[in-house]
Design a protein around this nucleic acid. Sequence first.
DNA 1: TCTCTAAACAAGAATGATTCCTATTCAGGA
DNA 2: TCCTGAATAGGAATCATTCTTGTTTAGAGA
Lengths: 150, 150
Amino acid sequence: MAVSKAEIERRMERLAQTCRGGRLKLTHQRMEVFRELAGAEDHPDAETIYQNVRRRVPAISRDTVYRTLATLEEQGLVHKAEILSGRGRYDANMEHHHHFICTECGRVHDFYSRTLDDLPIPRSVASFGRVESAQVQLRGICANCAKGKR
Amino acid sequence: MAVSKAEIERRMERLAQTCRGGRLKLTHQRMEVFRELAGAEDHPDAETIYQNVRRRVPAISRDTVYRTLATLEEQGLVHKAEILSGRGRYDANMEHHHHFICTECGRVHDFYSRTLDDLPIPRSVASFGRVESAQVQLRGICANCAKGKR
DNA sequence: TCTCTAAACAAGAATGATTCCTATTCAGGA
DNA sequence: TCCTGAATAGGAATCATTCTTGTTTAGAGA
Ligand SMILES: [Mn+2]
Ligand SMILES: [Mn+2]
Ligand SMILES: [Zn+2]
Ligand SMILES: [Zn+2]
C-alpha cells in the first residue's frame, strides 16, 4: 500500500514548519528531495532520489541531494537506514551476539542475551520473505566519547 | 578480557580444517589475516588488518586482505558487521520500526512490533555507554528473489 | 516592493573504500 | 619433484560520498 495523499501532505507541512522554525530556507530543491521521500516506501538511495528529482528539477546536483538528505536527517525528518561510516568491520566471534555501536567514534562492542537471540518475529514479516538472521543493533555514545566531550 | 590462547588455537585449527575440507589453499596470507581476527575483539576494518598483517607479511596487498575477508566470511569463519552494499537508504517514515533486508537484492521492508520496540537491554551494556536507539535487523531472501531463483 | 546577505546551490574535482585487471607466484595433489 | 589451478601483488578503476569554488537565491529588513 502506498503512502496516502493526506500523509504526504502532513509530511510536507512538517517540512515547512521545520524550516520556518529553524533558520532553514524552504528551497525548491529541498522540497522536491523531501517530496520524493514523503511518498516512497522503498528506502531509495541518494542516486535514485537524484534521478527522480532531476526530472522535475533538471539542474539539481548530486551534492545538493546528499547535503539535503543530511540536513533532513539532522532535523529528524528522514531516517537513514544502515551504515556505520563506510568501512566494514570484522569479527571472528561467531557465537550469536549483538552490537552496541558508538555513533561518535565507531567503536563496536559485542553483547550477549538469550532473550534477544530468540526474538518474536511478527507473522507479517513472513510475507516479505524467508528470515535468515536477526540481530539487535544498539546505537549510542560510548563511555570514552562521553568522557572526552566534557 | 582478551581472547584466550586456547580459543585462538581452536580458531586457527578451524581455519585449517575448513581449507582442507573445501578446495581452499592454506596460504601464508590467509593464515595471517585470519590470525589477526582470531585474536581481536575490536572488530577491526580491512585497512587496520592490512596494516597489522603487513608487519609480518610486508608484501601483502590490500586486495588480498579484502579478498581473504570475503572468503573467510563465505566459509562462516568471520562475521562482517553492518553494511548492506555501500549505499545509504533513506526513509521518511519516522515511526519506530524495524527492517527486513534482502541480502540478495537489497530491498528493505519496514515492520512494526510493540514487543521489539521495547527490548530488554542487558545491564552489562550500560558499561559500554549510553544507548540512544535500538533496532532489530532481519536479513534474509525476499519473496521476489526466492521466486527468481527457481 | 526593493535591497542585501547569509544560506544554499551547481559543477566538477577530490577522497576513501573497495573491486577489478593482468602478470606472476605458489600450495598441494599426482 | 612437477604441474596446474588457485591465489597473490601491484596498480588502475570504480563507486559512493564529500569538498571546493564561484554563483544564485530565500526571505529578513528597509
Ligand atoms: Mn561482533
Ligand atoms: Mn524504514
Ligand atoms: Zn565512542
Ligand atoms: Zn530480494
